[in-house]
Nucleic acid binder design. Structure first.
Length: 423
RNA sequence: GGAGAGGUGACCGAGUAGGCCGAAGGUGCUCGCCUGCUAAGCGAGUGUACGGUGAAAGCUGUACCCAGGGUUCAAAUCCCUGCCUCUCCGCCA
């Protein structure tokens, strides 16, 4: 949620910033709703004030044994009036909030302007494309030939966009999870957490998935819980409704979780292989940062995520998303795109974002400056570190041999019983 | 699933024959004083949110004692529902 005061006082600035996202967002009604809301607040509070002082008078009269029946009579009518006004206020407030909750975050000034992913700016390249003296295969062919990925049986068990990992495939997935967790905990200073994989509606609203993107989420029957689409949701909500101390910041968490997404808008897209699944594993990095240096923290977060691919020695590039490609809650995002020789493309493997105070305002994550007396909103950040399924793809395709076997990257061997080759 | 107990401020913990309770006391924290350091001591302050006013500090109003309803002129205190925690039993990984 963006700052309501900003909308109240600088609606033009807000609209101009949002326009850079490409689509137009209707902030038109917000100013009027806000005015109406505040008018009603003033009116009801005035009446309540009158009522409160009358209550005191009645109490005094009662105590001295005097008659208070006419005051009590008046109190009754006052109560009715307040009730009516409160009803109006409730609807006005709900409407105002409902509209406010679907307004996206304002892009940071450093974000390149553009309308689609074609306008994203490549800001880093690392490593080189490996060369092969044979035609490199896509991971789905490699996986089926080695019998470590079974898409057909997963479809039988559940449906499309699921995968059954087998044998060394399952081991590789598990190894990557442990490798990444260890790296971020031991070398990058994150605290490991293992959160619930289902969350309630409030948490989903706190990070911005709701109310706008409900059709993307798996909802449970019987309880109002959702399967998480990313660990960002439970982990960012760890400090929802809390007031932190300045010297606690930055707080850095790393979490492994499975992620569940409906992929409602992606029919027919990436139907083969591990690329786009309804369920996938991910190791996620989350930071709660001081607003003064949250953009530095974003650079650090990005480096932490990149480090995974560096240690695996796999070529990638980093792009800064343009204003038109930015996610709903994000003020600035870097995508790490890994090279997949079997498909001859770069594919997003991590998305690192600074949400500034957008999620913090929704989830009420605040802090108090040293010696300060006011609470302020923290900045929240997160990034994949990394998506596991897509890392499996990257390892398989980059480390494949002509005979269809896969060399295990050195960094992973301790996590795979010192295995050198998957065959 | 059955039986019982409970949910008060950063934390602990008072407060139930309804009214002056945003809430005693303690701890913690902040500031000041004091002691050559450490420990201790003394004094003051210390909830959040949303409004109004102000350049700001501040002043001021309203709400909030798990959440949502209800009774009442008036509820932390009474009633109902839900959620959560704890104990015992059952069941279970």
């Amino acid at each position: 949620m963006i700052d309501p005061k900003l909308i109240r006082e600088n609606i033009n600035v807000v609209n101009a910033a949002l326009a850079k996202r490409g689509a137009s967002f209707d902030t038109g009604g917000l100013v009027g709703l806000d005015e109406r809301r505040r008018g009603l607040i003033q009116e009801t509070e005035k009446l309540k004030n009158e009522k409160n002082s009358l209550s005191n008078e009645i109490a005094k009269l009662r105590k001295s044994g005097a008659d208070a029946s006419d005051k009590i009579e008046y109190q009754r009518s006052l109560g009715k009036k307040i009730e009516d006004l409160a009803q109006d206020l409730k609807t006005a407030e709900a409407e105002w909030e409902q509209q406010l909750l679907v307004v996206p975050n304002i892009p940071d000034g450093s974000v390149p302007e553009g309308t689609s992913d074609e306008d994203n700016r490549i800001v880093k390249m690392w490593g080189e494309k490996p060369s092969f003296d044979f035609e490199p295969k896509a991971h789905w062919d490699l996986g089926e030939n080695l019998d470590i990925l079974d898409f057909k049986r997963a479809a039988k068990i559940t449906g499309s966009r699921f995968t059954l990992y087998k044998s060394h495939g399952a081991l590789l997935e598990r190894a990557l999870i442990n490798f990444m967790l260890d790296l971020h905990v031991r070398e990058h200073g994150y605290t490991e957490v293992l959160p619930p994989f289902m969350v309630n509606r409030t948490s989903m609203t706190g990070t911005g998935q709701l109310p706008k993107f409900e059709e993307e989420l798996f909802h449970l029957e019987g309880v109002d819980y959702f399967l998480i689409p990313t660990a960002e949701v439970p982990v960012t909500n760890i400090h929802a409704d809390e007031i932190l101390k300045e010297d606690q910041l930055p707080i850095k968490y790393v979490a492994y979780t499975p992620c569940f997404r409906k992929e409602a808008g992606a029919h027919g897209k990436d139907t083969r292989g591990l690329t786009r699944q309804h369920q996938f594993n991910k190791v996620e990095l989350v930071k709660f940062a001081n607003p003064d240096n949250s953009f530095d923290e974003l650079e650090g977060l990005l480096l932490d995520a990149e480090d995974v691919l560096k240690k695996l020695n796999i070529h990638y590039r980093v792009s800064a998303l343009c204003t038109g490609d930015l996610g709903f809650s994000s003020a600035k995002t870097y995508d790490i795109e890994v090279w997949l020789p079997g498909q001859n493309i770069y594919r997003e493997i991590s998305s690192c974002s600074n949400f500034t105070d957008f999620q913090a305002r929704r989830a009420k994550v605040r802090y108090r400056r040293q010696g300060g007396n006011k609470t302020e909103l923290v900045h929240t950040l997160n990034g994949s570190g990394l998506a596991i399924g897509r890392t499996v793809m990257a390892v398989m395709e980059n480390y494949q041999k002509a005979d269809g076997t896969i060399t295990v990257p050195e960094a992973l061997r301790p996590y795979m019983h010192n295995m050198e080759t998957i065959k």
